[in-house]
Simulated assay, not measured.
Amino acid sequence: MEFKNSSLNKFEYELMEKLILIDKNNYNEEGKILFNLQISGGLDSMCLLNAFAKILNFKLFKPKNQFIFIAQHFNHKKRGVESDEDAAFVIKNCLNLGIPIYQELYVNKFNEKENFQDFARNWRKKCATELCLQLRKDLNCKKYFIVTAHHARDHVETVLMHLIRGCSLNGLLGIQEFDNQKIFYRPFFNMEYEKIVKYGNQENIKYRQDSSNLTDDYDRNYIRNQILPHFKRIKDSYEKSFCTMSNHVSEYLQNFPNKIDLSKSGNSILTDKMSYSEVYDLLLLKNKEIFKILTKNVIQNILHEMELMKKSNFSQKEIMLAQGWIVHLVKGNNNIEIDVYQKKTIK
């Protein structure tokens, strides 16, 4: 694919620097790295597609590893003809840019009782991971990344949704550049949305408008359409402020386990006279990594289960928490002992 302008602009150059860093961090010997670009057809993902394609064709971009770019589009068949037109648009643009495109079709009926957005997100993650695992085997790639165009405004929406639902400090991290497994990669994670809009205008990038985003039917849409304009009215650079806050939270969480006083008594006895802070400290003493998912609701649930256990004939009980954490209660003669551990997940 020949581009009118063979050089990179600032937007593309900054993205190339991120790719060079990935190349450096994943180089021990030459190999192939697969980048699966998640392309919906919207402005942000089409900007991602255009920038990656230009970088791939830039003559001065010479990574030590062999970079393989593909694209993947998900047709949920939720908006009838409009969904099919989105798919055709993405396929046409990918072929014009020389990027192999894979389309996923959802052919079953959605369960109306389920949250559609959560269901669709999990379906996309599952399909993207399965495709990468298959291509890693077929193409003999040593590493793969699933690349999305999430940006700073998406980050703000995510943090607000976590806050509304009642989250731990971990929920304030919002959208980070990489997930914990270093598989999902979001190069625009701290980029203001207006910067993406500006790039799209400069490059004259065509895109599709998802009509469902214009309604307030989903919580995220309501936040975007009704709440964020007020934030922008108060402070034009509110997206940067949220990113800065999340950076501070990230630094605190990274250092927090080291601040725990492990010289405290190793007592494992849980009593109904304990305050929330005492239960919190006790859980941290058992395993300091659990702080990432501890909230007032979690501790309240543990105390509630303890009360139920006292009145039952059960001598042991396991309480399942987020991220594979398990609280194990054992009833003795006049007390209840507590232990915590994290169940290892198979990837």
Rank of each mutant, 00 (worst) to 15 (best):
I164V: 13
C132S: 12
K143T: 15
L131P: 03
H162I: 07
K206N: 13
A149G: 06
G171S: 08
R136W: 04
I183G: 09
T129N: 08
K125P: 06
C132D: 13
R121P: 07
R121A: 15
K137A: 13
R165C: 09
R186G: 04
R153A: 08
A128R: 02
I164P: 00
I205R: 00
N180R: 11
R121K: 12
M191H: 00
Q117W: 11
I164S: 07
F184H: 04
M191E: 00
L135I: 12
R186Y: 07
A152L: 04
N180V: 13
V197R: 00
F184Q: 02
N204L: 13
N170F: 12
K206P: 10
L172E: 07
L172M: 13
R186Q: 10
M191T: 04
C127K: 12
L135W: 08
I205P: 01
C167H: 01
T158S: 10
R121T: 15
Q134Y: 15
E157Q: 10
I175W: 01
Y199I: 06
G200M: 06
C132A: 09
L163G: 04
A149E: 01
R165F: 10
E157T: 15
A128N: 14
D179E: 07
R124S: 11
A152G: 09
N190M: 07
Y193L: 07
E177Y: 05
V159R: 00
N190L: 02
C127H: 03
K126M: 14
L139W: 15
E157C: 13
R153H: 08
S168M: 06
E177L: 05
H162C: 13
E130K: 11
F119D: 05
N140F: 11
R153M: 08
C132P: 05
M191G: 01
F178P: 04
Q117N: 09
R186W: 05
I175K: 01
L133V: 13
N190T: 10
I205H: 01
Q202P: 00
N140Q: 11
D154C: 02
L135M: 10
N201T: 12
I175C: 02
Y193E: 07
M191I: 09
Q202C: 09
T158Q: 03
V197S: 00
E194D: 14
V156F: 05
A120E: 03
E203S: 13
I146M: 02
L172Q: 05
L133M: 10
F184N: 03
C127S: 07
D154N: 01
K195E: 14
G200A: 09
A120R: 01
N201H: 11
K137N: 12
C127G: 02
L173T: 11
L172G: 12
K126A: 15
N170S: 12
Y144N: 07
R124A: 10
F145M: 09
K182T: 09
M191S: 02
N180E: 14
S168A: 14
L163P: 00
F189V: 03
G166Q: 08
V159G: 00
I183C: 09
M191V: 06
E194S: 08
Q202N: 14
T148R: 02
V147H: 01
F189Y: 14
